[in-house]
Every structure is written in C-alpha cells, then in structure tokens.
Design a binder for these strands. Sequence first.
RNA 1: GACCCUAUGGUCUAGCGGUUAGGACACCUCCCUUUCACGGAGGUAGCCCGGGUUCGAUUCCCGGUAGGGUCGCCA
Length: 449
Amino acid sequence: MKPRVRFAPSPTGYLHIGGARTALFNWLYARHTGGTLVLRIEDTDAARNSQEAVDVILKGLRWLGLDWDEGPLTADATGPCKGDRGPYFQSQRKSHYTARVEDLLARGLAYEHEGAIKFKMTREPITIPDLVVGDVVRPLTDREQLDPDWVLVRSDGQPVFHFVNVVDDLEMGITHVIRGEDHLSNTAKHIALFRAFGVEPPRYAHIPLILNGDGSKMSKRDKGASLTTYLDEGFLPEAVDNYLCLLGWSPKDNLEKIPLSEVVERFDLPQILRHNAKFDFEKLLWLQGEYCRELAPERFHELAVHALTHEGVDIHALDANYVQAALATCRGKIKTFAELPAYAGFYFREDIAYDPEAATKAFIPENKPRLEKVRDAFDALAAFDAAGIEAALKATAVGLGVKVGALIHPTRLAVTGHPHGPSLYHLLEVLGKDRVRHRIEKALGSFPA
RNA sequence: GACCCUAUGGUCUAGCGGUUAGGACACCUCCCUUUCACGGAGGUAGCCCGGGUUCGAUUCCCGGUAGGGUCGCCA
C-alpha cells in the first residue's frame, strides 16, 4: 500500500518556517515513495480563522513548489477540493466528529463531565514507535495521574484538536504522520484514541524543531519565522527549499546545494536527525546567492522587475531595452532581490545621493581635475560602449600618471552615488553618454572648494 | 514539579569501535580584479562532563549537566 501522508496546518494568518519544513518533509516522503500528500486545513478555531489566513498557507506551499494530491484548491472552506476523502476543512467535518463521539459514548469509552465529553484514557504507559526517534515509552505525568482522562468535546460543543486530528487521520487513511517533535508526548493520547476506535495507529515520524540562533523556540514574532518574509524579501523558493532540507536531514556525500528533484530520490524518514537545529540565516543567504547567480537571464529580469515595482521604483515609463540592459549588469552581483532598489536605483532616478563616507574619500580637491579629464575623455568618445570607456579611462590614467583606480572611484561615485555596484564600464554604457556627462558635471559641482 | 527527546567547531552536518575526526556557512590571511560580488589557495575553531564495557571509545551502556518538548474545555 502506498503511503498517505498529510500536512495539517491551522490557519493562523502566517506559515511558520518550521511548518513549511514539515510540509516539505511530508511532500518529499510522498514523492519519494510514490504516495499521496493530503492537505487538510485545521480550521476548528473559528475565532481566528479566515479565508485570508488559509490563503497564506496555500500561497506559501505553492511558492515552495509543494503540490498536494488531495485537499483544497481554494481558500474557501466550502469551495472546490480534489480527492475523495474530504471534506478537507475541519470546519466542514462536524458530522464525522459527532458520529465518532457517539460511538465512543455508546461503547462506554467516553463520558460526559460538566457538560464536556471526556475520553477514558488508559492508565498504562504507551509505547510510541517512531520512525525517527525509535520506541518512546510515555507514562502518565504526575498531573495526568491525578486525572488521566481528557476532553474530547468542550462544553460548548467544540471538539478539541487531539480528537479531530485523530478522527481525520483515521478517516482519511493516513498511514504516516510526519510532524514536529512538539507533538511527540501527545502521541500517546492519539494512539489510545486510535485503539479505542479499534484500528492500528499510523506510523509516526517526529521531526526535530527549528530553533532561533540563540536556541530559543522560534515563535511567530521571531525574525525569519514567517515564510512570507522570504517571499517578500526576494528569496528564491529553490534556495529556501534547499536550506530547509539541510535542517535535520543530510544528503550525505558532502553535498550542500542540491536540487529538490535529487532530494526526492535520496530522502527517507529513518535518516532524519533527532536533534533540533538552529536557524542559520547566513547559510540560507549563501544558498540564495548560489541560486540567484545562476538564474536564467529571463527569470532574473522578471524577478528583478517585480522586486523594483514592489518597492515603488517606477520603471514602466522607461525604455524597456534600457531597463533590460540595466538589470543585466546586476545579474550575478546581488544575492536577494530586496537589495536591488538600493543596488540599481541609480539607473532609475536622476537624483542620486552620494554615500557620505565615500564622498569624503573620493570627492577631494585633487580628484576634481581628474574627473574633468574623465569627462573630457568621454566627450571625445565616438562610441560610448564598455570597451571604449575602459580604453578611455585607462588612457586618461596614463596621461595623468595615476592608477586607473584613482579615476574609477570618483567616477563611480559621481554617477551612482555608491562606492560599490555593477561593473563601472558596463553601467556607464547603459546609462549613456548624456546621463553620465550630466552626472559628472553635477558631481564636479559638489566638490569642496 | 513529572514525563519525554536531544547533545561532533559559533552554525548546519558526515561519521555508525581503531580516521591526521570530513564537508558547508560564518570568520581571518593571501591571490585574481574597475568597486562589490564571484573564483582560487591557505588558516583559526569541534566530539558536553564523569563513570563503565572493550586491547581500544566521538561511536555502545549508566549517571550528571545543558538545551528543547509535553503535561489545557489552545492548535
């Protein structure tokens, strides 16, 4: 029988990076085994549940490229779904829960207490066979010994998470539950419930958690905890996927950068690590740079345009060829698209501000005549292209008896405002003779007297 | 408080009784170079502690310590 796994997020309004990894591991296992991935929305808490919140989840998963075989197609709980084991929104499964409670009640395995319905929990320790951790024996804690029974349905009629989760896994035919280790202790409750229903529980695989850099639990407010951050800050989904794979799992063979398709081949549950991992933003950034650098020109351009537009840089009034040429000089230089407005902004506006620190170094009296020579040399150029510009700059440097760097730095600052940026020769060509001339003149005017 | 899980450089990890403990990120040095980035060559840094088992433990067992998790009419 092919495995059936599920990702069952609660629509809280954001998708936790750890949740994204749980989804990824479920997806990998399903794809590796040829099994089925079910997406189930645990929207039992009507108070904080909304279509927008579901959309965040769907968008996040789609962005990461994690497609599901069964589950919602839209964020609408009553909308279209694929798969024949639905509904896939818990808010639509009331009747299932009611029937299950009545069954337990009828067989004396549950009872009413102060308006709530409680489950008669076994007093014996329960062994949890876990594919990642091994056999875990979970006796009752001291508090549980006082009252081992637990609530299935609240006095307001709402079933609780542990109950609906088990009912859904059972009725959806889930064979492997791959989830965060924070659920490991609670699994005893789940196993007891499955047995009460007369079925064998699914196999479990509890994966380690992702912690903050300081070792604390990564929660909603922590930097980098929300997947949306990466989407908004110009990360590439392949970089995020790749990085997430490396947390708690290893492709071995000293591999770091590895396409998801190859991870699908190599991935399996028993090799998952048992200890938590701290989130290392720097390493994610490195991977991001790796993927960003080798982006196909068309995709780079597309994402760059999106990032600029998103940041309010209006490029639609500009000549498309100009924009294209400008962005092309940035390819291979930036790591995330969020850097682009600062990195390439000088292409798209006339008012450029000079980096103060760089200006005190480059805009010094002795550089003024040099920059004038550069201007004159550029004026004399018939073809204002990178090769010609380079030759002109070098010839000017020779004429002045200085290193070419002495001309390059003031020129770069004059036309871009920054000490760093794309290849100077190429960016000058893209800006064009007139803009360059204008900016150099303006810069000459801002030299100290 | 009880119970559970975990423990290789700062971080992610390879290792599954005998290794000069390997790789990657980060960091440092040098080279390349029009800046930055990239690339190349080096470098600093690690098996939590204590007992066992064994001819021999990073590796197996026990204890401690530390970190994390769970014990809700939250999910």
